[in-house]
Each structure stands twice: as C-alpha cells, then as structure tokens.
Amino acid sequence: MDIDVAVSAEWEALRERLLHGPPWRTLMVAGPVNAGKTTLARWLAAQVNEHYRTLFLDADPGQSLVGPPTTLALSRVPIDPDRWLRLRFVGHISPEGHLLQMLSGLVRLVEAARWHRAQRLVIDLPGHMANDAGRELFFQMLDVIRPDYVVALQREDELEPVLRCFRRGRRPRIVRLPVAEAVQERDRWVRSDYRRERFRRYFAGARLRRLSVQARGLHGMVPALDNPEAVRHRLVALCDRHGFARVLGIVARCDAELAWLYFWAPPFRAREIATIQFGRFRLDPAEVGLVTRRRPPAGDVPLRTDVAEE
C-alpha cells in the first residue's frame, strides 16, 4: 500500500531519531479521533522497515486499516489491508465496554510480533476517548506494553492526564506532535461507510455454514443460545487453540437442541477451530451484500461448506 503524504519537519526529525537514536523495539502512535494517527503510523512503519524488520499492529477496532472492524491485527510491512499475520477479536467497534478484550488482544499480538522476529513494532492505537474509560484504557495499554516510544498527536492537551503518569519513568519516551493542518476530519457517516465497506470486502466470499457448538468452548459475550433474537446477526470469531481469530461469522441462528450454529463466513477449516467467541456487535448480512434466506436450513442438511464436522 503506497503512502502519499505531506511530510512535515517534525516527522522528518522523528524518523531520524528512530533510525539513528537510542535502540528501541516498540512504538505506539496515540491521539484523538481524526488526528492522522494511522497515516503517521503507516509512514513511520514504512520508513523504519527500510532498515529493520518491522511489523505493524492495527489496534483500532472501529476504523481498522488491516482486517475487518471489531478486530486487532498484526501485519507485515508494506501493509496489505486484506492480509495479516494474526487477528484478535474485540467483539465491537468501540473499545468502551471491551477493555479486557482490547488489553488481552494487544498483549497477545505484541507476543506474536516477537514470535515473528520483529525487530521493530509500530502500534496504531484507537482514537483516544476523552472520558474516564478512555483515559484508563490508554493508561493500561502503556502500563502493560511499556513501549519504548509513544508518539502523542494532540490538538490541545488531550493526552496529558495520562502522559503525566509516566513522566518520572525511563519508558516510554514521549514525543509530542501537533495534529497536521492538512488532516481532514471525517464525520460519523463517513466513518460508518468506511466500516461497511471493510465488512463487505471481508465477507465477499462468505457462504452459509454450520459448526458444532457442543464440540467447542464458548466465550466472550455469550447470549442465550435458545433465544433466536439474542443470537441473530451476532458477530462471532472462530478461534484457534491459541486464541487468535481464524475467521469471523455473522450468526443466522442456533439449533440449541442439535448444538449447531449456522452463520455466514468465508472459507475455513473446522479442525483448526477450538473456541467460538461471541461479540456484542450485530451486523445485518444484507448490509454487506449477502443474499439471505428467510430461514436458515434446519436439521442435518447439506450446506455449501468446507467445514464438515468430524
């Protein structure tokens, strides 16, 4: 993915510091919504990757650059939005109400970056929420990950209440940058359209499939499976034994008696799925271009699927 941006003197100075200054391993880019975080994070990752093996961690489940919304993704550089190394499911487009999923996903993906032998890791954080939950999430992410650098984009002093908590420590080194004048604010309709398009790309090859619920563990925001309205259109992640999402699905229904879950999903291998993680986010299949039936097939009927149960 090519990056065409106007590079400021502050960005150039930061690049030189990262390439020729003290050694480092992990960098976070933080800031409010519509501050240009992702653009800066992508640019820095591309610059550093010319000298070191660099990975990119997209930690914004609402405006995902890599992977579908509701997820966190670890990616190679150069970045391909539709290819990733590891995926973690948050279960919603907003971190608020899902702080545990955000933190655990971030930690596991940082571990995965080390497993993939990353020499440098650039993390694009979600847009900072200026409330108690947002400030606590930002603090906990810094406290748990302990990055070498935090690049703080601010219009005023939005991040200072949290950054002050780390001013007496050796890590992280904090680099404060103003929000570039060229950054264009996107209203909620534009952001919503972007999410819908990302979901459409992800579910473009989806088919109606089924999976045994009885044979696998359930976690996340698990609803009452015998309540059709509670499960209908829920977004779920089918996870491997390490807790990484292999594929996302949109639930059509659950046959509680026969322990079958019916859902729309891209192709996957059933033998790789250890758990089913339920999210709180709902997605209408029609919104992402899927042709739905009035009622998913009942009982043990053939489905167009590559996930036949053992």
Rank of each mutant, 00 (worst) to 15 (best):
R195S: 08
E229D: 14
M221P: 06
F199K: 09
H219A: 10
L177A: 09
G205R: 13
F199T: 10
R198K: 11
V183R: 12
G169F: 08
L218T: 02
L208R: 03
V231W: 10
R209Q: 14
R209G: 09
P172I: 01
F166N: 02
L211K: 02
D226V: 12
A204S: 13
R232Y: 15
L225Q: 04
E181I: 13
A224P: 01
Q184I: 11
N227P: 02
A182M: 11
R176P: 00
M221Q: 15
N227R: 14
R198A: 07
A180W: 15
R171F: 04
R186V: 10
R210V: 00
R196D: 00
E185M: 12
N227G: 12
R216S: 09
R234F: 08
R216A: 09
L218N: 06
G220H: 04
L235D: 02
R170A: 02
L208K: 05
G217W: 14
V231Q: 06
G220T: 10
E185L: 11
G217I: 05
I174T: 10
A224I: 08
D226G: 13
E181V: 13
A206C: 03
Y202H: 09
S212G: 12
V179I: 12
V190E: 15
R191E: 05
W189M: 15
R209Y: 09
L225Y: 04
V231L: 14
N227L: 11
A230S: 15
S192C: 07
Y202S: 04
A182Y: 07
R196Q: 04
L208W: 03
V222D: 02
A224T: 08
W189N: 14
G205N: 13
R200Q: 13
F166E: 00
G169D: 01
G169I: 07
R196T: 02
D226H: 15
I174D: 01
R216C: 13
G169Y: 07
R191H: 10
L177Q: 07
R198Y: 04
L211D: 01
N227H: 14
F203I: 02
P172V: 06
L211W: 00
R168V: 02
R201K: 14
V179T: 08
E197G: 03
A206H: 02
A204R: 12
Y202E: 06
Y194H: 13
R171T: 00
V213S: 05
Y202I: 04
R195E: 03
P228N: 03
Y194E: 12
R216N: 13
R201Q: 12
G220Q: 01
R168S: 09
V179H: 04
R191P: 06
L235P: 01
D193Y: 07
E229W: 14
P223N: 03
V183K: 08
R232F: 15
Q184G: 00
V183D: 08
R173G: 10
R168G: 03
V190F: 15
L218Q: 06
P178N: 08
R195Q: 12
E197M: 05
L218V: 01
E197Q: 11
G169C: 10
L218I: 07
A182G: 10
V190Y: 15
L225N: 04
L225G: 00
R234E: 09
A182K: 14
R216P: 07
